[in-house]
Design a protein around this nucleic acid. Structure first.
Lengths: 336, 336
DNA sequence: GTGAAAGCGCTAACAA
DNA sequence: TTGTTAGCGCTTTCAC
């Protein structure tokens, strides 16, 4: 009755089958007012019988529409991005659109290439989480489609951004540690260079501000720069810290994943969390509820971020708009 | 000198600038033998000066080529898929192609819709991790582009597949537990229904075979079906198991994430791992090295899976081929 | 060695 | 209300 479409069936085929023009078919199938109850039904039937589905490539070439939003992220295996992508996909699907994810790699060149790729694909919009790219770089691409920059690096420029409140989030986390009696707080994955303005730098700034605000002396050696943002980095650095005989009673990790590495290193060293060392992470990924002990973390409210991003996309001419989504501290067992 | 391309520059523009035909430009830019050292250079210069980049949509409409491979997965936030995607992307990028990821949702309807979407997008190939879809469903889509099915569900049908050796992997894991003295092994996330043939069922089969092979009585009540594959499911079920007063000295979890939930529940109950209860997971995700204690897991060799998939894609007419990638057991601290 | 022309499948303008 | 036409930007014959 309804054999699978062996060979591609085009609009023209449907038009022929229904005895109308291609334009009529196109109109009906796109819900345009160009209807006529009787003809419309005939067209719909024909399309269904033939198993017709519009070719998105052709449609796009002609109309420019994609119904797809691109999401460019540095790495595919970081929980934070996976969870954020899930929220974005959920919300987009309610609008009948699709989220298409692509990895950049995180370096300046790779991010530019990925942006280029997405731009050429002419997605309805591109959401991009930037790490290495700088404003002038991006300008040189002359983006013609809506581009929303995401989350970590503050990039004054021509594109709208959604930032999480890195600084306040870090501030609250460190304040929490200080009010819980911590005196020597390690900033695991911090940054010493004041010129950069990325996520690392901003969270470190919150760490600093908390100390000065609460009148706690800040020990510069406890700000540890890391080679990466993986658990391995956190583990290695913490192990080293212990081996070097540093005194510390708390760790504020730049990322939950880094914090998990730290938790593991502390366990290996026989240090108890939170009794000997308190630990706080950042991102509030799902794993936080299942580590031993459960990890206190700064919640960036990924769902709100997703909503803000899609709002920015929905309204045109949003250049320069910057939305900052507030964070909250999710206190669990790893702090007192 | 090189102003950013404000408005889209097309092939025709380059042709005009170089004083040649569009065909010449197309040929040169695609590395076709249609060269003429001198003209070729002139064309390349013109293209660079104008900041020309081919429109992939138009190219695709005409030639069918995409240079992109689609990867359809049930959920975006599962570590296993994130890690597998990373391997696929790595290998594809070496071929100058891109991996484009899309979520299905995991239900039959959603997977069909996602497959449809990918099919229409005319990617060079589609890799799809199936959960709910059955062979006849997929046939009805009449896929015209290479489709490789992935990993979990055995689907005898017209498409090539890469499977992990679920059964042997589970067998080795359970055998390991039995030889380490376990007598009452919980299969967390197992399946009682013999008619299904998915990942859950196959891993449960390995669990059964290990018992019979080693002459260990199998306790049917210890095979626990789960509502999902998240940590929450593992946590809740394990907590319940303890509350119900079940006797068990080991847990084989269908997934590392489930195992992490179990670890957490055991810690809450004051049970020591591996002393009181041994635990093994499946997937060997990165987190296994950072849980407390570190999680013994079945390693499916994601990198090999990625390689096998791309091999299958590379060679045409691979219908019906099934590659099974062997697993190995990665012993860590959660088992004796 | 190079150019001209056709056309991929669709939609948006214009005619009828 | 409907059909005809043109053309999105590219690649690919075919003719020069």
């Amino acid at each position: 009755m309804k054999p699978p479409p062996r060979t591609t069936v085009t609009l023209a085929d449907v038009a022929a089958a229904a005895g109308v023009s291609k334009a009529a078919v196109s109109g009906v199938l796109n819900g345009k007012p160009r209807v006529s109850a009787t003809t419309a039904q005939r067209i719909k039937d024909a399309a269904k019988n033939l198993g017709y589905h519009a070719n998105p490539t052709a449609r796009q070439l002609r109309s420019g529409r994609t119904d797809a939003v691109g999401f460019v992220i540095p790495e595919l295996h970081r929980p934070y991005f996976g969870e954020l992508a899930t929220h974005l996909a959920n919300q987009l699907e309610q609008q009948g659109r699709h989220l298409v994810i692509q990895r950049s790699g995180g370096s300046r060149e790779q991010e530019l290439a990925a942006a280029q790729f997405a731009q050429l694909r002419r997605y309805d919009a591109v959401i991009m989480s930037v790490l290495g790219v700088d404003p002038p770089d991006l300008e040189s691409l002359g983006f013609t489609i809506p581009l929303v920059l995401l989350g970590e690096k503050s990039m004054p420029g021509a594109h709208p951004q959604v930032l999480m409140d890195n600084e306040t989030g870090a501030f609250e986390a460190v304040k929490h540690l200080l009010t819980r009696g911590a005196q020597h707080i390690v900033m695991l994955g911090g940054s010493h260079s004041p010129d950069r303005n990325d996520m690392t730098r901003r969270r470190t700034q919150g760490y600093r501000t908390a100390h000065t605000t609460l009148g706690q002396p800040l020990i510069e050696e406890l700000i540890i720069e890391l080679g990466g943002v993986g658990a391995e980095s956190g583990y290695t650095a913490t192990t080293q810290l212990i081996a070097d005989g540093h005194t510390f009673d708390a760790i504020f990790a730049v990322t939950d994943v880094v914090a998990m590495g730290a938790l593991r290193a502390l366990a290996d060293a026989g240090l108890r969390v939170p009794h000997d060392v308190q630990v706080i992470g950042f991102d509030d990924i799902a794993d936080c509820n299942y580590t031993v002990p459960r990890l206190t973390s700064v919640n960036p409210h990924k769902e709100h971020i997703a909503t803000a991003v899609l709002d920015l996309i929905a309204v045109p001419n949003n250049d320069n708009r910057v939305i900052t989504v507030p964070t909250t501290l999710n206190v669990r067992e790893s702090t007192l």
